[in-house]
């Protein structure tokens, strides 16, 4: 069989030895990743890596922080400084990183359960502070790592292991949530919208302030299977048919229902002083001449700066 596999397909080269252009940004000793076939997480990670390279931030300054769950594993695959923290606490950990070294471009890459359920309090406060960081929230409508339980983003009616008769809770409309809390960049795409997602992620990474990108992504193994929605590919087809691009949409209108339309686009982009901007300005004003701006992280002894 292996002979057949390494034989070039008719008419085109099939190359086994070549290296994917993203490999310098991947921990290749950890690839293949753990995500299931037709899961969208790999696609989002792929787009994030493209966006890192296209962003105006030097590679060494990019830092990724994840929480727990399927999406939480993302940090472990990217070859930049990466932190896999506790469930829900990626945002405050990231806040500490950013404040201790304001030069860093901190990206929180985590799931809907991690960011919106157990970490919901941190999400609203990070948005309120306009903490200068990027959040990529991969929303697959359930807790996948633990076998498919419903969560705060599960559309009403969707069946999951802890909602065997269908979820009867009202789900969060995440863009509305973060928008109303003060996020200064809010966008949503699906994992099918790869070009738009890359463009948006580059914008989000270059944005000064709290930028939030929700990516609707298929969970074939638990969410789709329980709800008889087919494979991840079938979900991409659903995204294709049901997504409606509406840039600048009022975030109150972008809620998602079971099998309903998905409004995507860049909803919010505004300028507002970040946490560090307001802190330095306010302290500078009130403390006056005696104010000493945060001196940056401790210098490592070999003189790196």
């Amino acid at each position: 069989m292996s002979e057949l596999l390494t034989t070039p397909a008719p008419g085109g080269p099939v190359v086994e030895e070549e290296r994917h252009p993203h490999e310098p940004f991947l921990r290749m000793d950890r690839i293949p990743h753990i995500w299931c076939s037709t899961c969208g997480l790999g696609t989002v990670l792929n787009c994030y890596i493209t966006a890192i390279q296209r962003s105006s931030v030097p590679r060494a300054d990019h830092t990724i922080v994840s929480g727990i769950g399927c999406t939480g594993r993302a940090a472990g695959y990217v070859k930049i400084d990466s932190f896999h923290t506790t469930h829900g606490r990626a945002l405050p950990f990231a806040t500490g990183l950013k404040l201790a070294n304001p030069r860093l471009k901190v990206t929180v890459f985590s799931g809907d359960g991690d960011l919106v359920a157990i970490g919901g309090n941190h999400l609203i406060h990070a948005a309120r502070r306009n903490m200068d960081m990027t959040v990529i929230c991969v929303n697959n409508f359930n807790y996948a790592m633990t076998g498919g339980q419903f969560g705060p983003t599960t559309p009403e009616g969707a069946k999951l292991t802890t909602a065997p008769y269908g979820s009867y809770e009202h789900p969060f409309n995440i863009p509305f949530l973060v928008d109303s809390c003060g996020a200064t960049y809010v966008a949503r795409w699906t994992s099918l919208h790869v070009r738009e997602m890359i463009e948006t992620l580059v914008e989000a990474l270059n944005h000064r302030g709290f930028s939030f990108v929700e990516v609707i992504s298929p969970c074939p193994t638990v969410y789709a299977r329980r709800n008889r929605l087919g494979t991840g590919l079938d979900l991409l087809k659903y995204y294709h048919d049901s997504a409606e691009v509406r840039h600048g949409a009022d975030t109150r209108d972008v809620d998602i229902s079971f099998k309903g339309r998905i409004i995507v686009g860049r909803f919010v982009q505004r300028c507002k002083p970040t946490y560090l901007d307001t802190m330095d300005a306010a302290l500078g004003r009130s403390v006056g001449k005696e104010f000493v701006c945060y001196e940056g992280p401790m210098q490592a002894s070999d003189g790196r700066s």
């Binding site: 008419g11 994917h20 690839i31 899961c39 070009r195 890359i198």
Partner: peptide, 28 residues
């Protein structure tokens, strides 16, 4: 798994979509 195979190599316009959408970093 059944991987993809190139059946119309002359038709590829190097749009890069396969590379961007692949969750496995397996095609570009």
């Amino acid at each position: 798994y059944h991987p993809p195979v190139v059946v119309k190599p002359e038709a590829c316009v190097d749009c890069g979509l396969c590379g961007a959408i692949c969750p496995e970093f397996a095609i570009w």
